[in-house]
Structure formats: structure tokens, C-alpha cells
Design a protein around this nucleic acid. Structure first.
Lengths: 225, 225
DNA sequence: GAACACCCATGCGGATCCTGCTGGTCGAGG
DNA sequence: CCTCGACCAGCAGGATCCGCATGGGTGTTC
């Protein structure tokens, strides 16, 4: 996990950085708010660990507010000697996700950092493909166009999926044979043509704009007109 | 925001519920783990606030583990009188997202709950379900146990999916007929038995721990032993 | 321990579904 | 006009899938 630590106290910083690294994470360290902001804004981190009070104009709260203002949603854990409830509330309200007061047990810091990093921000797998008004839902194996459900066969589904994953690019017959049919040779028949035809028939029935274009001597391409 | 509060202490529950409601949130309350699990599994909440220790078999940690096993990723805040670092770490490691010790200031609870709810995690569709070493990938329509791929028929897949979505709960025959077969009547045959049997055969071949348990006169249940 | 209800496993047969091929037609490009 | 690539309707073999019936277990109740 990539973690950014912004902490001015060299002693604390060393201690935290070492521990996180030993737990298998990558840690970048900045000693003041300005550097921290720069790093956080330019690189992608899974979790930010920020000291609440920092030297220089940019303290922890400012830093988070700025990041959030830029649309950066990285989870933030505040680390602070300010224990008052009001301070904690302020940190959370500013956009922090957690708040740990010094002194703290490293085990808890680690657990909290990992809890923050556990969030599904990183790996959101694509679950639906979309080209113009045509949608393909990988989860339910469902195809809809303009909201109307369209029944397709498994092979047709694979074919369409492959086309849509390469929307706007020409897909050659050889690629299709490889990826959709698992043929590693030329079957010497027009299987592909037939399936493309069937697919077109289903997709375009009742619509005017055809979606699948043939590219002569090359293959097929799907594209939002 | 929709919040589920699972807390057995009536006094605390009333206090928290009232406060959250006054802050403009909708609060459901369950007084024990079993009810809490049921609610959390059947309805969608933005945040779960769980007492760490609960009467009855299902305590806070068990509850979270079960939910996470079902692929439910709702953020969880633990509320507990157990202040030891080890306890806090345990709660977070189990899948909790935050941990607040009693007594607490309501302002801080509110700030933390709102910080949790702020996350974009709410509507990430589940793409894989897991129970013990059995995994079901909705995207690829694939079932694996202990890393080994298992081929299942469509109907078997739906059956298994439904069981896994309700892991740890008994699933009645009527529910299965409704949800898996779309029958709204009793077909007077043993269709279900047959499919459960086939599924068991495939899932348990080569493993020792059986996964699907039958609950006499009630239905079936899948659970990590 | 007998009767009963419930549950399990297996084999079978029908139905559906799926897919690739053929063969004839069309149309673009030269 | 000729040729080649692309298109499409229909067909038929096969595979898959699914539900049912049957007969055998197992736990429960009286």
C-alpha cells in the first residue's frame, strides 16, 4: 500500500515510517505541509497520514481541505497531540476520515491505516460497458439498448463484449477467432460473419443507427456514432 | 443518511439514536446481534454503528465478519467499553472502519459517522462472494474452492449465489423457489433437493468440510464452519 | 419398533438451446 | 462487367440442461 506521511517531528516520523514499512507498505515522507500537499496532489496514495499541526502556512486541516477541493478523495488519518473533542471533530469535519491522538500505540495506527486502505477505491472492476445507448452488464450478463433488454446467446455475448472493450478500434477476424472462439487457426468458414449478422439483427431491430460497422478487408468496429 | 445502530444498552441506544436523528439521519435500531445481522443483510445502510459486545451468539466482530463474507462493504463503526489497544486493533482487523470507546462525546460520534458515510463506497456493486474457501465471482460466473475451479450449471449457480448472499442464515425452500426458480407456487416435486444434492456433490468433491448444511424442516444454510 | 415425514442420490428422457455450416445473394471496388 | 468479400436465412447435429420419479436413508413421534 502506498502511504504518504506528513509529519514534522523527525522522531515520530522515523518511528511511524519504519513500522509501516515493516508491515509491507511503501511510505513517502514530507516534513511540512507544503511538500505534503505537493506530493499528495501529484502522486496517488492509498492513505494519507497527516499531522494535525504543521509548520509553515499549510497545516493538516488546510491540506485536506485543499485536496478535497481538488477532488482528491484519498482517505486521511489525522495524527495529533490535540486531544480535545472539538479538535477531533474539526479534523473529521474538514474531510478527515479518522483521528488518532498522540501518544498512540503503533499497532492501532497500523490497524487504522489498513482499515482506511481497505476501501474499494483502488480496484473497482468494470462491471458494465457502454457504447452510445448500448449497455452491456458483465454482472448480470445482460444487454440493453435504449433501456430495452436484448437477449443474446453466450457466444454472441462474448463477441459483443470483445467489440465493446475495443470500441472505436478495428477488431480483426483473427483477433476474434482467438479471443472469442479460442481458435488458433482459420476454420475456413464464415462463422464470424454469421454471428456478427445475428448480433446486428438483434441490436439494431427497432433502432435506426447501426452500431457495428464492417471495415472491409480488416474486420469490424463498434463505435458511438 | 441511513444508519443502523446495534446496541443492547437501551439507555445508550436511545441517546445515540435521538442524537443522530436530530442531525437529520434515519436510524434503525437492533438490540442484539442476530437482529442486527438480519437488518444489515437485508437492507442497505450507509453506516453501521455496532456495539462491540452484544448479547446472544452474534457479537459485533462476528457480525462484521459475516457481512464482509457476504460481500457487504458498508462502513462500520465500533462502539465499545473495551478500551485496550488490542481490542481496538481486533475490531479494526475484523473489518471495522473505526472504533470509538465509551464513554464518548456525541459530537465526536456524529463526526465520525458522517466521515464514514462520506465515502463513495456506498454503491460499489459486489462482484465476488466468499464463504470459507469457496468463492463465487459474479463477473466471470465462476466458482472456485481452495483455488480449484468448479463447473456449475446456471441454475446451480443461481442457487449457490442465493445461498451465499445469505451466508449464515437459513434459506427456506419457499425463498429458493421464489428467487432461484421464479416459481410462486409449490411444484410438488423435489427439484430443490436435487439441485442442492448436485451442488454439494460438486462443491465437496475432494474436500472434507461440507459447506451446505440442511436445517430440518426449515431449509438450507451455507456457512463458514 | 412401527409409521411417518423429511431428505438424499441417481438415472432417464424430453425439451430447449446453441452453434457452425451451407449455399445463394448482394454490393463494393477495380 | 467481374471478382471477391461480406451478408443472411435455414438447417441439423449436438450438447446442455433440467425436472421428475423412484428407491433408499435418517431422524421423529407415538
Amino acid at each position: 500500500m502506498r502511504i504518504l506521511l506528513v509529519e514534522d517531528d523527525a522522531e515520530v516520523a522515523r518511528f511511524v515510517k519504519k513500522g509501516l514499512q515493516e508491515a509491507g507498505h511503501t511510505v513517502e515522507h514530507a516534513a511540512n505541509g507544503r511538500d505534503g500537499l505537493f506530493l499528495a496532489a501529484s502522486e496517488g496514495f492509498d492513505v494519507l497520514v497527516l499531522d494535525r499541526m504543521l509548520p509553515g502556512g499549510v497545516d493538516g486541516v488546510r491540506l485536506v481541505e485543499t485536496l478535497r477541493g481538488q477532488g482528491n478523495r484519498s482517505p486521511v488519518l489525522f495524527l495529533s497531540a490535540l486531544t480535545a473533542v472539538d479538535e477531533r471533530v474539526k479534523g473529521l469535519k474538514a474531510g478527515g476520515d479518522d483521528y488518532l491522538t498522540k501518544p498512540f500505540a503503533f499497532a492501532e495506527l497500523l490497524a487504522r491505516v489498513e482499515a482506511l486502505g481497505r476501501r474499494p477505491s483502488a480496484e473497482v472492476p468494470t462491471t458494465r460497458l457502454k457504447v452510445a445507448d448500448l449497455e452491456l452488464d458483465l454482472l448480470s450478463r445482460t444487454v440493453t439498448r435504449g433501456g430495452r433488454k436484448i437477449d443474446v446467446q453466450p457466444r454472441e455475448f462474448r463477441l459483443l463484449e470483445h467489440l465493446m472493450r475495443h470500441a472505436g478500434q478495428v477488431v480483426t477476424r483473427t483477433m476474434l477467432l482467438e479471443k472469442v472462439w479460442d481458435y488458433h487457426f482459420d476454420p475456413q468458414t464464415n462463422v464470424i460473419d454469421v454471428h456478427v449478422s445475428r448480433l446486428r439483427h438483434k441490436l439494431d431491430k427497432g433502432f435506426d443507427k447501426p452500431l457495428i460497422q464492417t471495415v472491409r478487408n480488416a474486420g469490424y468496429m463498434i463505435r458511438a456514432q
